[in-house]
Amino acid sequence: MVDKSEKFRWFVRLGYFSRAVFYILIGFLALTAGSADTGPEGVFRTVQDFPAGTALLWIVAIGLLSYALFRMCSPLFDIEHEGSDRKGIAVRIGHAGSAIGHLVLAYSAVRLATGNGSGGGDTAQQAAAGVLSVQFGSFVLGLLGVAFIATGLFQAKKAYSGEFMHRISASAPDATRWLGGAGFAARAVVFVVIGWSLIHSAWISSSAQVMSLGSAISSLHDEGILFTLVAAGLILFGLFSLVLARYRIVPDLGAGGTVPTFRL
């Protein structure tokens, strides 16, 4: 009989697998389609076009939800012992942001799998317009932009330092450090672009012209080699996520079988 910790590890590994599928496809679509539909809906439609695509889309959606719940355990339970000092709190808040982002992706995948996809429209701009319409909305949107830029800088730091290797088994392939570094660097660029679009929209132009993940990538299309490097980097981040699906050190559930604790 599979114990609860083993089930938990399988859900986390499914989450990393789904993240891998998402980033490999979004980078591939960017390289092959240029400024065409490179956003999450484009990725999920591509998955749905595969043989047994709807079933695979459900697996990806469940995986993204699993990854989101795993990340939410960090701010709630500090499962990876980040601590409660200023740096630890910042990391755990970042994990909460990652959880929310992947919940949104899972929701988008489920909507398409059930035939309720939006079929168009820029949801990022619609959301921004809603925030700008309320009191202090521009202030909140601007702060969100600052958070995205800070996250981008943190991603760049991880790419340079290789600190992400501390949570990976020593038996992982030798290329893991290189794959992760390239992937985090590409994500850093995308997050900074999204953050700047939020700040510009909230505090400079007072419009709702903000960027989603897909539009942030597409906005680099005229930048030549930078666009190619970012798109290729996202594919490498997907491959890095595949490595994590196998070699990531996953916390065990505690004695009560509910709260995970990290295995140091």
Rank of each mutant, 00 (worst) to 15 (best):
M1W: 02
M1P: 13
V2W: 06
D3H: 07
S5N: 09
W10E: 15
A20Q: 04
V21I: 15
Y23D: 01
I24Q: 01
L25T: 12
A36V: 13
P40K: 00
E41F: 13
G42K: 11
R45D: 10
P51V: 09
I59A: 11
A61S: 11
G63R: 05
R71L: 09
C73A: 10
D78P: 12
E80L: 09
G88F: 03
I89M: 15
G97Y: 09
S98T: 01
A99E: 01
I100C: 14
I100P: 14
H102N: 10
H102T: 04
H102W: 08
A109S: 08
A109V: 01
R111G: 01
L112F: 06
A113S: 12
G115I: 12
G115M: 11
G115A: 11
G117Y: 00
S118L: 08
G119M: 04
D122Y: 11
D122E: 14
Q125L: 07
Q125H: 04
A127Q: 10
G130V: 00
S138R: 06
V140F: 12
V140L: 12
L143Y: 10
L144R: 03
V146L: 08
A150F: 03
F154Y: 12
Q155C: 09
A156D: 00
K158C: 05
A159N: 06
Y160R: 02
F164P: 03
F164T: 04
F164N: 07
R167H: 10
I168M: 04
I168G: 02
P173E: 02
L179M: 08
G180M: 02
F184I: 02
A185Q: 07
A186S: 11
R187I: 09
G195H: 13
G195T: 12
W196D: 12
I199C: 05
I204M: 04
S207G: 11
Q209T: 14
V210L: 12
M211D: 09
L213C: 07
G214A: 04
A216D: 09
A216H: 07
I217F: 12
E223T: 13
E223Y: 15
G224Q: 07
I225L: 15
F227R: 04
G233E: 02
I235C: 14
L242N: 03
P251C: 01
G254M: 06
A255T: 13
A255H: 13
A255N: 15
V259A: 12
F262L: 04
R263K: 14
R263P: 09
